[in-house]
Design a protein around this nucleic acid. Sequence first.
DNA 1: CGGCTTTGACCCGCGC
DNA 2: GCGCGGGTCAAAGCCG
Length: 325
Amino acid sequence: MSNEKEDPYNYDPFYYNIQHRTNRPVSVFPFFNDNNLSVYNQQAPTQSLQGFNDPPYMSFTDCLHGSADHYNTLSRALNVSCSSSEVISPIEDGSKKTGAGELSAATYENLPSTPNSSISNSSSNDGATEEDSGKIKKDKQPKESEDGDGDAKKVSKTKKKEKRQKEPRFAFLTKSEIDHLEDGYRWRKYGQKAVKNSPYPRSYYRCTSQKCTVKKRVERSFQDPSVVITTYEGQHNHHCPATLRGNATGMLPPSLLASTSIGQSFPQDLLTRLLPPSNQQGDQTSMFYHSLAPQNQQLQQHQLYSADYGLLQDLVPSFIHKQQP
DNA sequence: CGGCTTTGACCCGCGC
DNA sequence: GCGCGGGTCAAAGCCG
């Protein structure tokens, strides 16, 4: 916040979020390598995303396998629930108004807070569906029910608010020249908004598949224009339409395959959220990797950062530096 | 002609 | 209560 006010065009939204949501300054972010899904030991400067191209790294899988505690912590850090562990309450959406390129708390509020809520297809989809229908109601209500159904409005609002909090979201950053990265699904753009304090607009996409309410937001970090921030919301209830048929699994790096074999590991769980309930292992993992390394060769550097870095500190203290006050 | 993008308008939530 | 900013709608336009 402070650095936003001091220099709204030159503050690090991630640093900002980490500080304010964890009360801990973090100077280093983990990054995933597109080749081996590794977590970088990135000694990134606090005010910039620059210079994260050549860090030493350790295998993300190694990281996951480091210890049970680490695994659980990572799950929490990524807000990916473990079926057998408690789920930390979702990050509160304390800052609705977000600045440029900033991953709002809502961005991280990805998961339901209830312990048994790990990838509840029904809740996720229903939530998204209801949210959409709620949106329709919201838009039409003023015209339809002008004779005043105040209670109904209130209920609708309350419902919507609740659903919104439950809506699973997951955001990641991709170093890419392309704004809208190919992820195997078809998206229809339904809006674009200028982002406060940013020269780059935010685009809103909706999955074109019928009855699929998955949305995603794409914006470019003004801090590092080469970084694209993609936020997925909801869960696909259908198969990947085109690109990931069959052979995509072959794209998977061994490390990721290993990680998926340990049950509800981070990528597995993440993918379960992003992908349809069926067509499990192969395509889900494929999509994850696909999103990391699209076939588009323009993406020479394609890195993915993720989730709650503050909590990641707990997970991987050995390679996440804490900045001394 | 269907599907997609663009873009201005609108609604809503939140902070002041 | 008001204004701001985020999110969405929907008409118009574009394109293959």
